[in-house]
Design a protein around this nucleic acid. Sequence first.
DNA 1: CATGTTTTGTGATTTTTCTAACATTTTTTT
DNA 2: AAAAAAATGTTAGAAAAATCACAAAACATG
Lengths: 258, 258
Amino acid sequence: MNGRSAMRLARLQEALVGGGTIHLSEAARLCGVSEMTIRRDVAASDGAIVFIGGRLVMADNPQFAPVYDLDEQRGSHYFAKQRLCHEAAAFIEEGDTLFIDCGTTLMPLVSLLSSFNALTVVTYALNVASAVAALPGVRLILLGGLYHDSSQSFGSDDMDEAIERLGINKAFISAAGVDPERGVSCFHFHEVAPKRAAIAAATQCILVVDETKLGVIRPARFAGLEAFDVLICDGEAGQALSSWQRHATATRIRILLA
Amino acid sequence: MNGRSAMRLARLQEALVGGGTIHLSEAARLCGVSEMTIRRDVAASDGAIVFIGGRLVMADNPQFAPVYDLDEQRGSHYFAKQRLCHEAAAFIEEGDTLFIDCGTTLMPLVSLLSSFNALTVVTYALNVASAVAALPGVRLILLGGLYHDSSQSFGSDDMDEAIERLGINKAFISAAGVDPERGVSCFHFHEVAPKRAAIAAATQCILVVDETKLGVIRPARFAGLEAFDVLICDGEAGQALSSWQRHATATRIRILLA
DNA sequence: CATGTTTTGTGATTTTTCTAACATTTTTTT
DNA sequence: AAAAAAATGTTAGAAAAATCACAAAACATG
């Protein structure tokens, strides 16, 4: 990609941020180049803007649900996550202060918040923040710091203190691995502090993972299973289920299947 | 519209709720009918679902709302801002730690950062952060807090302390009003603390405003003109220019015209 | 300033989407 | 059960969009 091309894309991106589409011809006119050049720009770009039937739309704006075809979404566990989040949303009440963890698992939860009008969301994830910022009735508190690309989230030394100062009601936590003996873990160490602080601060802790995470151990352990009040999981393959129910009664965790 | 048709539409609507698109062929397969039937269903419906380039989308999906030419008006401003930012970018060197202010003025500056690979950007604006996060070679530090929709930025009590702790090289500041006697001002009071802290911390302060801001006073004053080393402005209408040059020599500020 | 490279434009070609007409099937009515 | 009506499928052609190939222009470089 070249400099001028990047500038045109930025120009178009600015036009499309906040939603909407523009037709190829319109985009070409706007940038003062031919339609073919716009096509080439978009094709060579990182995929932030895509074509849909001769129109340009923002694709990766987390503010919106993905544009991809539904069968692709099916493949990427999109529907599974949607179901999980639907279950999770049932715990939310008007006036709550929610902690929402980073990752893609809890993204569908954000779009379910639009029906409330007195929520506060605390997060340290950029994608979550961008999505929440678009909701009119939801207050957003972003815990800043140094950005980590790997998890689209921020990390800082005093994040735990910042979380302590907030009155968090319910914490929705995601994880990359959940094991009854070895606890709940994630990939990145900078996520440990905010997760722990949120779990400690929250009245109710809800762990949301899809079933591929069960029995898996990742490098950064941040809690034991007993730290959570509810585990929301999708039990398509119910084989491991019975053993998990045993663990559940042992740790008093409540398992919900989406 | 007929009963079976309504049922198919309901089914498709369910698949599309929460955004996303579904291709005509996919929809036909999903409902077990021909593509033509889906077309007829959609055509005869109330308009909740619409076609866009062979794909079905919910009509109320803001992502697909046609954004008619936000042209000239916003477009011309955009190019002005682009010029301003091009001037501003000339001050940036490899290895710098930049403070980038909120607003739309400095957005084009972000896309100009992609040619560097050892920059650090400090900001308290969500739109700036989102844009910087996409750049591979740039470290991002976001100053978090409570989100303010009006300026797409965050505010918190300890932001000034957080800025003090950072080694900021160059501060790029935007403003809603610049007046030689009454100083530099913005609309929102929560912007004052970070702007002041950044100005105090930075080695070099660069004020970037378009000429419509000259001679304007806004509610929240955050600095005098003498606090800045450089003022970058577009001098299309050069009328006020001579008087500004006088102020410039008085305050030792360097005026650049884009 | 000539040279080679990159970027952009143009027109031809292929693919996809849209529309319309008519055939076929299903449902309803008599 | 036959006829009529409604719904759906099939095909063909028009329109739009996507791709390709090459020419022209802009840019960089020695």
